[in-house]
Simulated assay, not measured.
Amino acid sequence: MSRRPLTAVAAALLAVSLGVIGATLPVPFVALGPGPTHDTLGDYEGTQIVRVEGLPQYPTTGHLNMTTVSVTDRLSLFTTLWFWASGERRVIPRESVFPSDRTDQEIQDENAAQFASSESNAEAAAVTELGLPARVLVAGVVADSPAAGVLEAGDEIVSVAGQPVASAAEVSDRLTDARPGDTVAIDYRREGTEQQVDVVLGASPDRAQGFLGVRPTVEARDGAIDISLDGIGGPSAGLMFSLAVVDRLTPGELTGGRFIAGTGSIDPSGAVGAIDGVPFKMAKASEVGAEVFLVPDANCAEAVSTAPDGLDLIRVTTLDDAIDQLDALRAGRPTAPC
């Protein structure tokens, strides 16, 4: 065979090899993009996302959609280049999502735990906002803290230092005058049995008062509130879950019949926290018909620069603020823009 045909065959084989490598060889990147969105006032796979039992409920209309970000893993070289060139996804190093010092299963478990915490925090924030009779529970115990090995997640805190507690904030408030080394009595209920334990408080690096080491939350004392949505991870649905609980348990309709979407983590006190992936969440919300998007205050600058046309942005800082903003929107009054 002459040199020219041999060169052509070699080039063809090289091209095929490069094509196979480019199409199949994984690269250390992932792609972020719009993920699923769900109406927290609606159903998921036949089950109501926010279910309430034993408390008065009121009709709701419109939508309160939580939004998510999808992560596409195991990218090939060609797929990565396509996402990068098209702008359809944001390509980032895989290490930033799946750190090499943890297994994929560990990361999935952590995301699931964050989502479960967001569900618990959402209920606590709504219960606190509505002033419902509440039980104060231990959501978690800080490792190696004075409470470790004494209190457990799920324990109901009845009183601290001889004073009853009715909110998560009151657990800390009861320790305002206590100092490291002080012994404090904690009355708690576990599996229906009330018990008391004396705890020697530790030191905290950021405050003078004694450190107990529990993360308190609250749940409704009367009735039951259950928030459930399988297959979702992370903490960013908290705000929308809380709004759905408030909407179901109060007269009138928060949405005024509108399609509202949004994002934001929430803590038991109702403070709304910043999250990642706002541009993708807004894009998906706009795609499915949302008119308004609730944005955590700290995400507003990014949201303004990437918002789809026709999607109105409202800045929120707390659950109470979000409710006020939706009340203003429904009444035709000005809202807080990003």
Score class of each variant (00 low, 15 high):
residue 190 R to L: 11
residue 288 V to K: 05
residue 157 I to R: 00
residue 211 F to S: 06
residue 128 T to D: 15
residue 89 R to L: 07
residue 283 A to S: 15
residue 57 Q to G: 11
residue 94 R to K: 15
residue 206 D to Q: 14
residue 184 V to P: 00
residue 296 P to H: 05
residue 156 E to R: 07
residue 136 V to I: 09
residue 157 I to E: 07
residue 40 T to K: 07
residue 337 P to C: 11
residue 191 E to Y: 15
residue 171 V to F: 03
residue 158 V to H: 07
residue 193 T to V: 13
residue 176 T to W: 01
residue 224 A to D: 15
residue 305 S to I: 09
residue 255 T to F: 02
residue 167 S to T: 14
residue 101 D to W: 12
residue 11 A to D: 13
residue 151 L to G: 00
residue 91 V to W: 06
residue 111 N to I: 02
residue 298 A to H: 13
residue 180 P to A: 14
residue 184 V to T: 11
residue 132 L to A: 08
residue 273 G to F: 07
residue 315 R to H: 03
residue 129 E to T: 07
residue 182 D to H: 06
residue 5 P to Q: 05
residue 189 R to W: 14
residue 6 L to V: 12
residue 266 I to G: 09
residue 143 A to V: 12
residue 145 S to Q: 00
residue 96 S to V: 06
residue 224 A to K: 15
residue 325 Q to V: 05
residue 40 T to Y: 02
residue 125 A to T: 14
residue 18 L to G: 03
residue 237 A to F: 03
residue 184 V to C: 01
residue 299 N to C: 14
residue 194 E to F: 14
residue 30 V to Q: 03
residue 185 A to K: 11
residue 189 R to L: 04
residue 330 R to D: 08
residue 19 G to I: 09
residue 23 A to P: 03
residue 40 T to L: 15
residue 87 G to R: 08
residue 215 R to A: 15
residue 139 A to K: 03
residue 74 R to N: 15
residue 292 V to H: 07
residue 198 D to I: 08
residue 181 G to S: 10
residue 62 G to L: 03
residue 220 A to M: 02
residue 322 A to W: 03
residue 308 P to C: 05
residue 263 T to R: 08
residue 133 P to N: 13
residue 20 V to Y: 12
residue 252 G to A: 03
residue 253 E to W: 02
residue 8 A to H: 05
residue 311 L to Y: 04
residue 267 D to Q: 11
residue 44 Y to W: 05
residue 121 N to L: 11
residue 138 V to W: 07
residue 120 S to L: 14
residue 276 D to H: 12
residue 57 Q to W: 06
residue 51 R to H: 06
residue 74 R to L: 09
residue 300 C to I: 05
residue 72 T to V: 08
residue 307 A to N: 00
residue 310 G to N: 01
residue 245 V to D: 00
residue 256 G to C: 09
residue 89 R to Q: 10
residue 147 A to E: 00
residue 247 D to V: 04
residue 57 Q to M: 14
residue 146 P to R: 09
residue 17 S to C: 13
residue 1 M to Y: 09
residue 259 F to T: 00
residue 157 I to K: 04
residue 103 T to H: 06
residue 111 N to L: 13
residue 315 R to F: 02
residue 62 G to Q: 04
residue 199 V to Y: 01
residue 199 V to T: 10
residue 107 I to N: 05
residue 265 S to Y: 03
residue 325 Q to Y: 05
residue 170 E to T: 11
residue 87 G to F: 06
residue 318 T to R: 13
residue 85 A to D: 12
residue 111 N to A: 14
residue 29 F to H: 07
residue 119 E to Y: 12
residue 69 V to S: 10
residue 102 R to W: 00
residue 5 P to S: 01
residue 248 R to T: 08
residue 18 L to C: 10
residue 185 A to F: 08
residue 205 P to G: 09
residue 278 V to K: 03
residue 279 P to N: 00
residue 233 G to R: 04
residue 120 S to T: 15
residue 114 Q to R: 14
